[in-house]
Every structure is written in C-alpha cells, then in structure tokens.
Design a protein around this nucleic acid. Structure first.
Lengths: 182, 182
DNA sequence: TAGGCCATGTAACCGGTTACATGATTAG
DNA sequence: CTAATCATGTAACCGGTTACATGGCCTA
C-alpha cells in the first residue's frame, strides 16, 4: 500500500491533519493497511494537494498550533475508487516472534518467555483497540472488518495462552547454547 | 527483520545457495519472517562471508550451473543466537484486502468478490504449504509454529467463508459509485 | 522452440525512515 | 519543572527492489 492511496483512504473516512494521519496509521485502526511516518506524509500531502486530489484548510484555535486540515476532493475520490478496484497485493505478515518461536531450542527460556508475553500483550491491546473503534462503524465494511479482526485475533490469543508453557519448555533444549545473558 | 539475521537463521536450518535462500523466503516457510530478493541476498551473503559468519563452498554438478553453497560458521551461530535474544519487533500485518473490505460500500461487488476470493485462495495455499512442511519438523519450535499457523489460519478461513456473501452485499451500497469497470 | 527453472550477480533507483529543527500548551 | 501531546516540515540516508546481463538445462 503506497502512501498516496493510504492517505486518500484515511481522508475518505474523515478529514485530518498530517499529524492525525500519522497517528491513525501508527496506533489507530488504519495501522492494518500500511505504515507511514512524517517524512512521507507531509511531502505526499503536498503532492496530493498540487494534483488537486486533496484540499488543505488552515485552522487556528487560540493557544494551539496552527493546523492544516486536509479533505478529499471529488477528483481524489475518483482516484481512490479506481485504486480500490485493482486486485489487492498479497497480505503481508512478518513476525520476528515467529522466528524466535521456530528457533526456541536455540534460545534461553527467559528470552522466549518475554517474546511470547510481548505478543500476548500486543494482541490484547489490538483487541481492545478494535473494540474501542467498533462503535465508530456499527455496520458496513468497517463493522465487517472489526468482526473479522476480533475473530482471528481471539483464535490467535487462545493458542498463545494455551501453548505458552510448551514453547518455553522447548527453549534451552539445543546444544551450543550461549550463557544466559541478563 | 533485517536481511543479515534472516539469512543467518535460514542457514542455521540448512545450508543453501543464494537462489535457494530467496525461494524459501519468498514462497517457502521462511516467508513469515521477512522478505528479501536477489538484490539484497547476494551482497549480504558476500558481506557475511567477509565477516566470517558464513562460509561458501563451490559445487559443480555436470550439466548444472556452478553453485555456491553457504553454511553457518560458529561465529555466525553466536551472532544469530545473540540477535534472537533481543526483544522482537512488533509483528507486522499489512493488508490491502482489509482496506478494500473496510471500504466495500465504495466499491463494485465484482472487485470485492475478487478480493475476498483471492484472499481465500491465498490462505488455502498457505495452509497447504504449512501442512507440507510440517513433516520436516515433527517437534520443537518448528512444530509449535506450524500448529500455531494452522490454528490461526483455520479461524481466518472460516470467517472468510462464512461471511463472504455479507461482504459482497455491502459493496455498491455507497453513493457516487463509479461506473463498473471491466 | 518457447518458457520455466536453476544460478549468480550488479547498478540504478526509490519509497520511506530517522533525526532534526521549532515552538506552544497542558498534565503530572 | 519535566514530559507528553499537538503540530509542521526538511534533509540525509539507507535498505531493499527492479530490472538487467548471462547462460545452460529441461519440459511441454
């Protein structure tokens, strides 16, 4: 997902500043579609405005930094809809935790325990986030995706909790283990 | 997951050529940890060899291109184990399909149907791949990860199959729909 | 005989990150 | 008084991709 389409999509849901866009695709519900930072958001927003796909409006509240709120134009909507009709790229799932788990016999029980606990916490946080945002879209595609996420993540969490001990037990079984650090 | 650690990890499981490394992290079971292509594999392998973390051995079979098979050295193993003990980065899941689903009301039923069918096929393929590779590691971390993957992906597939129609029904409900292309 | 697979490698490019610069307000 | 949050933006850098160059074998 390139920065352009992602920003267009976010603005289709609601107008936002560069700062807000960054937040919603770092922590927020848009984090599942792609991840972009300031260094690409602001320049992209400028390009998009030059192309007439978004418009920025200056806002000034007393005692607050000036903000530039962007919203989608009709032309921007057309470009977004066209992009959405293209066949999607394969989903990407990349996990360092999985590598640690797959190589558990060559690691310390401590490191493995920490890795799985981090993942459990992470999924719990995401589940909480989905629950929080689900009220924003009680039906339609947003709701469908929320339910999907909760279904899959619940299964994920379930496995992790039920098999935590067995993974930790695997750790340290290999030869040539380094002396336990930390 | 940077190219260096990923290559070291792959070589811990079995020695391989640059070509084989690329295959196993594009289609194969290592695709969940990271994705690297020739342009980064070969230079990284050269660096790794210069650092003494891997060694390459030339092999020549009659009627076949010459191959350089790399394997991990003791120093490489140490570096890998150290890297594995670091707390893992948050897992990344990025999905264009999810964006299409979330915006289903602004898309054509055809495009939405194609997107969900592609995802269903994709998950079925991955499930088949895991089943195929599971026999390679009947126990330990590899087995744990295989079971994990099958558990989560089965839940995923289940939701997708049970809710396919409802997502397609959402499509086309929005205003300002573009004329159906294709 | 065309295309795919095996196999190695390079050079140019680029999308996106990191880190920085700046500054006001509010919460702890 | 410090840290966090809100807010915008730039410049340097870099990891990794794309596309290319090369070539022989095997299968449809």
């Amino acid at each position: 997902m390139n920065a352009k389409t992602l920003i267009l999509a976010i603005l289709k849901f609601q107008e936002a500043t560069g700062y807000e866009i960054r937040k919603s695709c770092t922590d927020g519900p848009f984090s599942y579609f792609g991840d972009i930072s300031y260094g690409s958001i602001y320049p992209t927003l400028a390009k998009l405005e030059a192309e007439g796909l978004v418009v920025g409006r200056m806002e000034q509240d007393a005692g607050k930094p000036e903000r530039k709120v962007f919203s989608l134009t009709d032309a921007g909507e057309d470009v977004l809809f066209l992009a959405l009709q293209e066949p999607p790229a394969k989903d990407k799932f990349k996990s360092e935790f999985l590598l640690i788990a797959a190589m558990a016999e060559n690691n310390t029980p401590q490191a493995v325990a920490r890795a799985i606990d981090m993942r459990i916490d992470h999924i719990r946080d995401e589940l909480a986030m989905i629950a929080k945002h689900q009220s924003d879209c009680p039906d339609g595609g947003g709701d469908w995706v929320s339910r999907y996420g909760m279904h899959v993540m619940s299964a994920d969490l379930e496995y992790l909790q039920n098999n935590r001990e067995s993974l930790i037990a695997i750790a340290g079984a290999g030869k040539n283990m380094p002396a336990a650090a930390e």
